[in-house]
Simulated scan of single mutants.
Amino acid sequence: MTLGSCAKNKDVDPSITNIAVTNPDFQTLEDAAIRGDVAVTLGNKNPNDPQGNYTVFAPTNSAFARLGLNSAQDLTALQLPFLRNTLFYHVFSGTLPGSALTIGSASAGAFRTPAIAATPTTPAVPSVTPTRRIIRRADGSLYVNGSKILSTDVKAANGLIHPIDKVLLATGADVLNSALALQSGSVFVKPELTFLVEAVVYCNLQGALTGTPGSPSLTVFAPTDQAFKNLGTILGVSLNQPADIRKLPVATVTAVLLNHVVLGGAQGGKFTSELPENTTIAAAGGPVIIGAFNNGVLTVKGTSNAAPANMVIPDVQCTNGVVHVIDRVLLP
Protein backbone atom coordinates (compact mmCIF):
# COMPACT_ATOMS: atom_id res chain seq x y z
CA MET A 1 0.00 0.00 0.00
CA THR A 2 1.83 3.05 -1.30
CA LEU A 3 0.37 5.66 0.99
CA GLY A 4 3.22 8.14 1.15
CA SER A 5 2.44 9.36 -2.36
CA CYS A 6 -0.79 10.92 -1.11
CA ALA A 7 0.93 14.15 -0.07
CA LYS A 8 0.11 17.14 -2.22
CA ASN A 9 3.48 18.66 -1.31
CA LYS A 10 6.10 15.95 -1.66
CA ASP A 11 8.46 17.86 0.65
CA VAL A 12 6.01 17.72 3.55
CA ASP A 13 4.48 14.54 4.96
CA PRO A 14 0.69 14.66 5.28
CA SER A 15 -0.93 14.22 8.66
CA ILE A 16 -2.56 10.94 9.64
CA THR A 17 -5.96 12.48 8.88
CA ASN A 18 -4.78 13.74 5.50
CA ILE A 19 -3.61 10.26 4.54
CA ALA A 20 -7.02 8.84 5.40
CA VAL A 21 -8.76 11.59 3.44
CA THR A 22 -6.66 11.24 0.30
CA ASN A 23 -6.31 7.46 0.14
CA PRO A 24 -9.40 5.57 -1.12
CA ASP A 25 -8.46 2.47 0.91
CA PHE A 26 -9.32 4.45 4.05
CA GLN A 27 -12.63 6.01 2.99
CA THR A 28 -14.66 4.28 5.71
CA LEU A 29 -12.01 5.12 8.30
CA GLU A 30 -12.28 8.75 7.23
CA ASP A 31 -16.07 8.60 7.58
CA ALA A 32 -15.73 7.00 11.01
CA ALA A 33 -13.18 9.59 12.16
CA ILE A 34 -15.47 12.41 11.09
CA ARG A 35 -18.54 10.89 12.74
CA GLY A 36 -16.55 10.03 15.87
CA ASP A 37 -15.04 13.53 16.00
CA VAL A 38 -11.44 12.33 16.05
CA ALA A 39 -10.36 13.56 12.60
CA VAL A 40 -9.16 16.91 13.94
CA THR A 41 -7.23 15.22 16.75
CA LEU A 42 -5.33 12.97 14.33
CA GLY A 43 -4.74 15.87 11.96
CA ASN A 44 -2.65 17.70 14.55
CA LYS A 45 0.40 17.05 16.67
CA ASN A 46 -0.04 14.95 19.79
CA PRO A 47 0.22 17.33 22.77
CA ASN A 48 0.98 14.40 25.10
CA ASP A 49 4.06 13.20 23.20
CA PRO A 50 7.39 15.10 23.12
CA GLN A 51 7.67 14.42 19.38
CA GLY A 52 4.01 15.20 18.78
CA ASN A 53 3.33 11.75 17.36
CA TYR A 54 0.53 9.21 17.28
CA THR A 55 0.68 5.66 15.95
CA VAL A 56 -2.51 4.37 14.38
CA PHE A 57 -3.49 0.80 13.53
CA ALA A 58 -5.64 1.78 10.55
CA PRO A 59 -8.46 -0.52 9.36
CA THR A 60 -8.96 -0.58 5.60
CA ASN A 61 -12.34 -0.36 3.90
CA SER A 62 -12.38 -4.16 3.74
CA ALA A 63 -11.84 -4.31 7.50
CA PHE A 64 -14.95 -2.21 8.13
CA ALA A 65 -16.89 -4.19 5.52
CA ARG A 66 -16.43 -7.34 7.65
CA LEU A 67 -18.79 -5.67 10.13
CA GLY A 68 -21.24 -4.60 7.44
CA LEU A 69 -19.92 -1.03 7.60
CA ASN A 70 -19.45 0.12 4.01
CA SER A 71 -20.48 3.77 4.14
CA ALA A 72 -20.95 6.76 6.39
CA GLN A 73 -24.62 5.84 6.73
CA ASP A 74 -23.75 2.31 7.88
CA LEU A 75 -21.71 3.77 10.74
CA THR A 76 -24.92 5.07 12.33
CA ALA A 77 -25.58 1.45 13.34
CA LEU A 78 -23.01 1.99 16.09
CA GLN A 79 -23.68 4.11 19.14
CA LEU A 80 -21.48 7.20 18.90
CA PRO A 81 -19.61 6.79 22.24
CA PHE A 82 -18.71 3.20 21.33
CA LEU A 83 -17.54 4.29 17.87
CA ARG A 84 -15.32 6.96 19.44
CA ASN A 85 -13.79 4.50 21.88
CA THR A 86 -13.26 2.00 19.09
CA LEU A 87 -11.37 4.58 17.06
CA PHE A 88 -9.22 5.62 20.02
CA TYR A 89 -8.44 1.97 20.73
CA HIS A 90 -6.58 1.97 17.40
CA VAL A 91 -4.37 4.85 18.54
CA PHE A 92 -1.12 4.74 20.49
CA SER A 93 0.08 7.98 22.05
CA GLY A 94 3.63 8.24 20.73
CA THR A 95 5.80 6.47 18.17
CA LEU A 96 5.38 2.70 17.91
CA PRO A 97 7.45 1.61 14.90
CA GLY A 98 7.17 -1.72 13.15
CA SER A 99 10.42 -2.82 14.77
CA ALA A 100 8.70 -2.58 18.18
CA LEU A 101 5.85 -4.89 17.12
CA THR A 102 7.48 -8.01 18.48
CA ILE A 103 5.88 -11.24 19.66
CA GLY A 104 4.20 -10.78 23.02
CA SER A 105 4.66 -7.03 23.13
CA ALA A 106 1.67 -5.01 24.23
CA SER A 107 0.45 -1.44 23.97
CA ALA A 108 -2.51 0.44 25.36
CA GLY A 109 -5.02 2.26 23.22
CA ALA A 110 -6.07 5.83 23.96
CA PHE A 111 -9.35 4.53 25.42
CA ARG A 112 -11.85 7.00 26.84
CA THR A 113 -14.52 6.70 29.54
CA PRO A 114 -17.16 5.50 29.84
CA ALA A 115 -16.33 2.42 27.79
CA ILE A 116 -19.97 1.84 26.94
CA ALA A 117 -22.46 4.67 27.15
CA ALA A 118 -25.56 4.67 29.27
CA THR A 119 -29.02 4.06 27.82
CA PRO A 120 -32.38 5.03 29.33
CA THR A 121 -32.51 1.60 31.01
CA THR A 122 -28.87 0.76 31.75
CA PRO A 123 -25.99 2.70 33.33
CA ALA A 124 -22.70 3.42 31.63
CA VAL A 125 -20.08 0.67 31.89
CA PRO A 126 -16.87 1.96 33.54
CA SER A 127 -13.83 1.69 31.31
CA VAL A 128 -10.74 -0.36 31.92
CA THR A 129 -8.07 0.54 29.39
CA PRO A 130 -7.54 -2.60 27.26
CA THR A 131 -4.13 -3.58 25.97
CA ARG A 132 -3.45 -4.75 22.43
CA ARG A 133 -1.00 -7.58 21.95
CA ILE A 134 1.20 -8.60 19.06
CA ILE A 135 0.99 -12.17 17.76
CA ARG A 136 3.05 -13.89 15.06
CA ARG A 137 1.64 -16.98 13.39
CA ALA A 138 3.70 -19.93 12.19
CA ASP A 139 3.68 -18.58 8.61
CA GLY A 140 5.39 -15.40 9.80
CA SER A 141 2.35 -13.13 9.46
CA LEU A 142 2.02 -10.48 12.15
CA TYR A 143 -1.20 -9.69 14.01
CA VAL A 144 -2.39 -7.13 16.52
CA ASN A 145 -4.99 -9.06 18.51
CA GLY A 146 -6.89 -10.86 15.75
CA SER A 147 -6.15 -8.31 13.02
CA LYS A 148 -3.46 -8.90 10.43
CA ILE A 149 -0.93 -6.10 10.07
CA LEU A 150 -0.81 -5.50 6.31
CA SER A 151 2.19 -3.16 6.36
CA THR A 152 4.06 -0.99 8.82
CA ASP A 153 5.63 2.42 9.22
CA VAL A 154 3.59 4.51 6.81
CA LYS A 155 5.03 7.88 7.71
CA ALA A 156 2.86 10.88 8.52
CA ALA A 157 3.75 14.36 9.71
CA ASN A 158 2.39 13.52 13.15
CA GLY A 159 3.29 9.86 13.47
CA LEU A 160 2.96 6.44 11.86
CA ILE A 161 0.24 4.27 10.35
CA HIS A 162 0.08 0.46 10.34
CA PRO A 163 -2.79 -0.70 8.06
CA ILE A 164 -4.76 -3.71 9.37
CA ASP A 165 -7.38 -6.06 7.91
CA LYS A 166 -9.94 -6.08 10.75
CA VAL A 167 -11.35 -3.41 13.04
CA LEU A 168 -10.00 -3.80 16.57
CA LEU A 169 -12.89 -4.22 18.99
CA ALA A 170 -12.68 -3.77 22.75
CA THR A 171 -15.40 -3.06 25.28
CA GLY A 172 -13.42 -2.04 28.36
CA ALA A 173 -15.78 -4.28 30.37
CA ASP A 174 -15.98 -7.94 31.35
CA VAL A 175 -17.76 -10.53 29.21
CA LEU A 176 -21.04 -10.30 31.13
CA ASN A 177 -21.28 -6.51 31.02
CA SER A 178 -20.21 -6.52 27.38
CA ALA A 179 -23.06 -8.88 26.53
CA LEU A 180 -25.47 -6.74 28.56
CA ALA A 181 -24.31 -3.67 26.64
CA LEU A 182 -25.06 -5.38 23.32
CA GLN A 183 -28.40 -6.60 24.66
CA SER A 184 -29.39 -3.08 25.73
CA GLY A 185 -28.37 -1.41 22.46
CA SER A 186 -25.36 0.40 23.96
CA VAL A 187 -22.96 -0.86 21.27
CA PHE A 188 -25.05 -1.39 18.16
CA VAL A 189 -28.20 0.70 18.00
CA LYS A 190 -30.10 -2.53 17.31
CA PRO A 191 -29.91 -4.85 20.35
CA GLU A 192 -28.06 -8.15 19.90
CA LEU A 193 -27.25 -11.19 22.09
CA THR A 194 -30.64 -10.75 23.77
CA PHE A 195 -31.33 -14.51 23.74
CA LEU A 196 -27.86 -15.27 25.11
CA VAL A 197 -28.27 -12.84 28.00
CA GLU A 198 -31.70 -14.29 28.81
CA ALA A 199 -30.23 -17.80 28.77
CA VAL A 200 -27.35 -16.80 31.07
CA VAL A 201 -29.77 -15.26 33.58
CA TYR A 202 -32.14 -18.25 33.33
CA CYS A 203 -29.28 -20.63 34.18
CA ASN A 204 -27.76 -18.30 36.81
CA LEU A 205 -24.39 -18.31 35.07
CA GLN A 206 -23.67 -14.59 35.41
CA GLY A 207 -20.83 -15.24 37.81
CA ALA A 208 -18.98 -17.40 35.30
CA LEU A 209 -18.76 -14.48 32.87
CA THR A 210 -17.88 -11.76 35.35
CA GLY A 211 -14.29 -10.67 35.65
CA THR A 212 -12.91 -10.81 39.18
CA PRO A 213 -9.27 -10.65 40.34
CA GLY A 214 -7.65 -14.02 39.81
CA SER A 215 -10.45 -15.42 37.66
CA PRO A 216 -9.43 -17.32 34.49
CA SER A 217 -9.31 -15.62 31.13
CA LEU A 218 -12.21 -16.74 28.95
CA THR A 219 -12.72 -17.54 25.30
CA VAL A 220 -16.44 -17.21 24.66
CA PHE A 221 -18.35 -18.18 21.52
CA ALA A 222 -21.51 -16.03 21.62
CA PRO A 223 -24.44 -17.06 19.39
CA THR A 224 -26.48 -14.31 17.74
CA ASP A 225 -30.20 -13.93 18.31
CA GLN A 226 -30.86 -15.50 14.91
CA ALA A 227 -28.73 -18.49 15.93
CA PHE A 228 -31.07 -19.14 18.87
CA LYS A 229 -34.14 -18.74 16.68
CA ASN A 230 -32.67 -21.28 14.28
CA LEU A 231 -32.04 -23.61 17.21
CA GLY A 232 -35.73 -23.46 18.03
CA THR A 233 -36.52 -24.70 14.53
CA ILE A 234 -34.13 -27.63 15.02
CA LEU A 235 -35.63 -28.52 18.41
CA GLY A 236 -39.23 -27.99 17.32
CA VAL A 237 -39.68 -25.23 19.92
CA SER A 238 -40.78 -21.72 19.07
CA LEU A 239 -37.97 -19.35 20.12
CA ASN A 240 -39.28 -16.05 18.81
CA GLN A 241 -38.31 -13.87 21.74
CA PRO A 242 -35.70 -14.16 24.50
CA ALA A 243 -38.17 -15.25 27.18
CA ASP A 244 -38.99 -18.32 25.07
CA ILE A 245 -35.64 -19.77 26.16
CA ARG A 246 -37.43 -20.65 29.40
CA LYS A 247 -39.57 -23.18 27.54
CA LEU A 248 -36.49 -25.43 27.59
CA PRO A 249 -35.33 -27.27 30.73
CA VAL A 250 -32.78 -25.24 32.65
CA ALA A 251 -30.40 -28.21 32.73
CA THR A 252 -30.49 -28.44 28.94
CA VAL A 253 -29.84 -24.73 28.45
CA THR A 254 -27.03 -24.82 31.03
CA ALA A 255 -25.30 -27.69 29.23
CA VAL A 256 -25.56 -25.83 25.93
CA LEU A 257 -24.24 -22.56 27.34
CA LEU A 258 -21.23 -24.20 28.97
CA ASN A 259 -20.33 -25.59 25.55
CA HIS A 260 -19.59 -22.01 24.47
CA VAL A 261 -17.12 -21.07 27.21
CA VAL A 262 -13.45 -22.00 27.49
CA LEU A 263 -12.43 -21.35 31.09
CA GLY A 264 -8.75 -20.47 31.21
CA GLY A 265 -6.07 -22.99 30.38
CA ALA A 266 -4.11 -22.98 27.14
CA GLN A 267 -7.06 -21.73 25.06
CA GLY A 268 -8.63 -19.20 27.41
CA GLY A 269 -8.68 -15.56 26.32
CA LYS A 270 -7.55 -16.27 22.77
CA PHE A 271 -7.94 -14.26 19.59
CA THR A 272 -8.53 -15.98 16.26
CA SER A 273 -4.86 -15.54 15.44
CA GLU A 274 -3.99 -17.66 18.50
CA LEU A 275 -6.62 -20.39 18.47
CA PRO A 276 -5.29 -23.74 17.18
CA GLU A 277 -6.84 -24.60 13.81
CA ASN A 278 -8.10 -28.01 12.75
CA THR A 279 -8.22 -29.39 16.26
CA THR A 280 -10.49 -29.90 19.27
CA ILE A 281 -10.39 -27.76 22.38
CA ALA A 282 -12.12 -28.28 25.73
CA ALA A 283 -15.01 -25.97 26.55
CA ALA A 284 -16.63 -26.09 29.98
CA GLY A 285 -19.43 -28.23 28.57
CA GLY A 286 -17.45 -30.55 26.34
CA PRO A 287 -15.24 -30.66 23.25
CA VAL A 288 -15.47 -27.96 20.58
CA ILE A 289 -14.02 -28.53 17.12
CA ILE A 290 -12.05 -25.66 15.61
CA GLY A 291 -11.81 -25.51 11.83
CA ALA A 292 -9.21 -24.06 9.48
CA PHE A 293 -7.89 -20.52 9.90
CA ASN A 294 -9.09 -18.71 6.79
CA ASN A 295 -9.04 -14.97 6.14
CA GLY A 296 -8.69 -14.22 9.83
CA VAL A 297 -11.52 -16.40 11.12
CA LEU A 298 -12.18 -20.02 12.08
CA THR A 299 -15.28 -22.17 12.13
CA VAL A 300 -16.46 -23.70 15.41
CA LYS A 301 -18.51 -26.87 15.83
CA GLY A 302 -20.15 -28.63 18.74
CA THR A 303 -20.16 -32.42 18.90
CA SER A 304 -23.84 -32.65 17.91
CA ASN A 305 -23.88 -29.92 15.26
CA ALA A 306 -24.53 -31.02 11.69
CA ALA A 307 -22.58 -28.01 10.39
CA PRO A 308 -20.06 -25.64 11.94
CA ALA A 309 -20.73 -22.10 13.09
CA ASN A 310 -19.11 -19.14 11.37
CA MET A 311 -17.65 -16.18 13.22
CA VAL A 312 -19.82 -13.12 12.55
CA ILE A 313 -17.86 -10.73 14.77
CA PRO A 314 -14.56 -12.25 15.90
CA ASP A 315 -12.02 -10.97 18.40
CA VAL A 316 -14.00 -8.72 20.74
CA GLN A 317 -11.61 -8.00 23.58
CA CYS A 318 -13.11 -7.86 27.06
CA THR A 319 -11.34 -7.29 30.35
CA ASN A 320 -11.55 -10.98 31.28
CA GLY A 321 -11.26 -12.63 27.89
CA VAL A 322 -12.17 -12.60 24.21
CA VAL A 323 -15.62 -13.04 22.66
CA HIS A 324 -16.28 -14.38 19.16
CA VAL A 325 -19.86 -13.83 18.00
CA ILE A 326 -21.04 -16.83 15.97
CA ASP A 327 -24.04 -17.67 13.77
CA ARG A 328 -24.95 -21.09 15.24
CA VAL A 329 -25.54 -22.48 18.72
CA LEU A 330 -22.91 -25.09 19.62
CA LEU A 331 -24.56 -28.33 20.72
CA PRO A 332 -22.74 -30.70 23.11
Rank of each mutant, 00 (worst) to 15 (best):
V154W: 01
G207Q: 07
P308C: 08
D139H: 14
A179I: 15
D153F: 12
P81D: 15
V21A: 15
Q226L: 06
A266G: 09
V200W: 01
Q241V: 15
K10F: 09
P130S: 10
G211M: 05
T194S: 14
D153W: 12
L80D: 11
N145R: 14
D225T: 07
K190G: 01
D315W: 08
P163S: 12
A284W: 00
S5H: 13
V21T: 10
G52M: 05
C6E: 13
F64I: 05
V262M: 01
N294R: 14
S217N: 15
D174N: 13
D244M: 07
R35P: 01
I326W: 03
K229H: 07
I161Q: 01
P242Y: 13
T131F: 10
T2K: 11
N177P: 01
P213D: 05
G207M: 02
N48R: 12
I164F: 06
A227V: 04
A63R: 02
V220H: 00
S273V: 09
T121D: 11
A77V: 04
V329G: 00
P50H: 04
G232P: 01
A100Y: 12
F92Y: 13
G291L: 05
I164R: 05
V288Q: 05
L257F: 08
E198K: 10
D49M: 07
V91K: 01
Q27I: 04
V40I: 10
R66K: 14
L78H: 05
T60Q: 03
Y89S: 12
T22H: 15
M311A: 14
S141F: 09
